[in-house]
Every structure is written in structure tokens, then in C-alpha cells.
Design a protein around this nucleic acid. Structure first.
Lengths: 194, 194
DNA sequence: CATCGTTGTGCAACTAGTTGCACAACGCCT
DNA sequence: AGGCGTTGTGCAACTAGTTGCACAACGATG
């Protein structure tokens, strides 16, 4: 139940139309809470009906015309309540570990390639994050000033840490898979003298 | 689309009834692909209809009676195909970073408490993983023997790394929030002489 | 032996997220 | 002026995951 809140946050940072939101989701909030444009439009409709946001008066009311939204006090209150509320972490659901366990039963065929591919994806994403960090926080990690900047920095750093985690783990997994596949023709678990 | 495959993996490791699967999900595969008993029962039905698994003949056919399932060759083939297939990582969706950004706009009230709580959750989970590691891989991380053991070790180590990531990041976030809240009465971004 | 809690299986209804398509408006281009 | 690609908005239908409840079977217990 966080998409509406992610949208409220984005709109508070800057009032936007559906497409602008979609774009910004693709390169900032969406790193941590991804959403397609369909989800966003639907949610904008709901939020408007709920009185949490409203279309800026300047916006054209016709279909196909762009509409920009801004957050109303009720929306801000809702967001503040959500931020302070107790909320359990959502259950983890990631396919790769499952695939490794499946491979332990049905064989590692094709896995190394996939691991390599994912590794590359995460490397790329880490590079993106670092680029953003260099642009937005050129001072480096220390004393970034006001509260807002600090918090944004922490969030971005979360992204960096997360990708680093993936890269390390995928490397470990890849190494294990390669060892196993080398051992298949060679010797099962005894590679060399002592 | 991985729940059926997680179930196939679990069933290959050991034929089980719905409830047994649910239990095992709660303490092993489910760490990485969580599922409720409802999802599992529904999926067992689908897998049976698809000819990927079958109820063990010994099982009682009545409602309420326990039924154990085993994987058929078609199911194993399907699992092998999935393991080798190309599959994109699923989009990330985590509420905490979003909440931090929301807090950057509406204030950090209540956040420190939540961060502390989550930190504690992840610490506990890390301890669980370490306990499992101590039980299942008492030799330590090196040369764990056959392919199966190696892969299981890699998966578990993924859990350990993941929780470690959370703990580190949450600590950083918590520190930032506390600094900000201290600064609220104090000085905004200049704590001390020099 | 009745009823009561526990274990195990399952349906139904709901919420969230995805995919595919429709179509208006706008700016070009010729 | 007619057609053509791009931008922006949106509906509809589907898949995945969640929640709440129903109910059979089994064993304990007054």
C-alpha cells in the first residue's frame, strides 16, 4: 500500500502530470518503488477522488490533454501519518536464490550465463547510482548540509549498498557454479593434490 | 511466475503435503520466495492439473485428509527449463527508502522508532541464518563438499549478506535521522566550533 | 458420547501489479 | 489538406498475492 504515498512524495517535491511522474519514477523514487504509467494514472485518479490531490486549475480538462496535479493538505497529512506509522517489511521474493536451489537438484545448466548477465545489470545500475551521487552530492559523503539533502543522500546510498550486495553475492554464486561445472568432468570435490 | 518452481524444488528435495510445504517455506525456501498456505494449495492444484506433480497413491482422497505430492518427469523438465531460462530481476519495491524521502518533505516524526524496529527485525533474522549455517555447514565456509551442499551454502550466504546490508544501511539511516532531530532544537548543520 | 481445540485442506472475494491496446492532441512534412 | 510519428492519457482484461472464512478429521477431556 505504498504507491499512493510514493506519488504524494513525488508530487510534493514537484507538482507534475502523469507522464512527468512516470519519468521521474524511472529515475529516482522508482529505483525503490517501481511503477508503470498505468499504475500511476490509476492511482492519480484515486488520489483525486479521495481529495488528496487536485489537478492544477491551469490544466486542460479534455482527454489527451496534460494535467498536472498538486498535493492538498489532506494528502500531506495522509503522507505524514504513513511515514510515522508502523509497517512491516514486505516478504522477500527473489527468483535467483530459488533458481540456485533448483539447480542443486536439476543441474546448473545455463545458470552461469544468467548469473553473469545479472551481475552485469547490477554493475550498470551501481554505476548509475554513483553518477547520480557525483552529480547531486559532489562534496562527498560527509556533512551534506540540510535535513532534506542528508535524507536523500541516505536513500541513494542505500541503492549503492544494495547493488554492492548483489554484485558481491552474484560473484560468489558464479564462482561456486563454475567450480561445480569444472568438477563435473574432473573430480567431484577434490581438485588437486593436498 | 516462480512460485510453482519454488514448490517443485521443495517437492524434489522431499515429497510433502500442503502443510508440510507451508512449514518448510516458513523456514527455508520461503526466506527468498515467501508464500502463504493458500497460494501453495492453489498452486499444488494447478501443478497437479498440469501433470507436473501427482498425489502419492497412499494419500487419502477425502477433503481434510492429508495428501502428499511428488514431482513427475514433466515437472522436473519444467523446472530445469526455468532454471536455465533468461529471467529479468523483478522490480524492487521497498517502502523504507520511500518513507525516508517522504520524511524529507513532511518531517521525520516517528521514523527513528520504525528504523530501530526494522533494525531489530533484521538482526534477529541474521541470527537465525547464522544458526542455520552453524547447524548445516559446521565446517565453516570453505570446501563444503558436493555440488548440492555448495549451492545451498551460497544461497544461505546470500541471506546473511542481505541482512548484513540491511543492518548497515538502517544504522546509517538511523544515525542521519537522529542527527537531524538533534539539530532541530540545536543548530541546523553546524554542530560545534571550527 | 458430546463438544472442543488443533491440524490440515480449501473456496471466495479482494487488492496490487502487469500487459495490451485505444485514442486524443500536436507538430511536422510534403 | 491529408497523412505520419510522437507524446500523453486512459480503459479493460489478466495474473499474482492476500485475507477471511468454511469445514473435515482427529484426538483429548469432562
Amino acid at each position: 500500500m505504498s504507491l499512493p504515498h510514493a506519488i504524494l512524495t513525488a508530487l510534493l517535491e514537484k507538482p507534475s502530470s502523469g507522464l512527468e511522474l512516470t519519468r521521474r519514477f524511472d529515475k529516482s523514487i522508482g529505483f525503490f518503488w517501481s511503477a508503470t504509467h498505468q499504475q500511476i494514472y490509476r492511482e492519480l485518479g484515486r488520489l483525486e477522488r479521495a481529495g488528496h490531490i487536485r489537478a492544477l486549475p491551469s490544466a486542460a480538462p479534455t482527454r489527451g490533454g496534460r494535467k498536472a496535479y498538486e498535493v492538498l493538505p489532506a494528502g500531506r497529512a495522509e503522507l505524514a501519518a504513513w511515514t510515522a506509522a508502523r509497517d512491516e517489511p514486505r516478504p522477500l521474493r527473489d527468483a535467483l536464490p530459488v533458481r540456485l536451489r533448483a539447480a542443486a537438484v536439476v543441474g546448473t545448466e545455463g545458470l552461469a550465463e544468467e548469473l553473469t548477465r545479472h551481475l552485469e545489470l547490477h554493475r550498470r545500475r551501481l554505476a548509475d547510482y554513483r553518477a547520480i551521487a557525483a552529480r547531486d552530492f559532489p562534496e562527498g559523503p560527509d556533512v551534506p548540509g540540510d535535513a532534506r539533502t542528508r535524507l536523500h543522500h541516505v536513500v541513494l546510498d542505500g541503492g549503492v549498498r544494495m547493488e554492492t550486495f548483489w554484485i558481491e553475492w552474484l560473484s560468489e554464486a558464479l564462482e561456486a557454479v563454475r567450480l561445480i561445472e569444472a568438477g563435473d568432468q574432473d573430480s567431484p570435490a577434490d581438485p588437486g593434490p593436498v
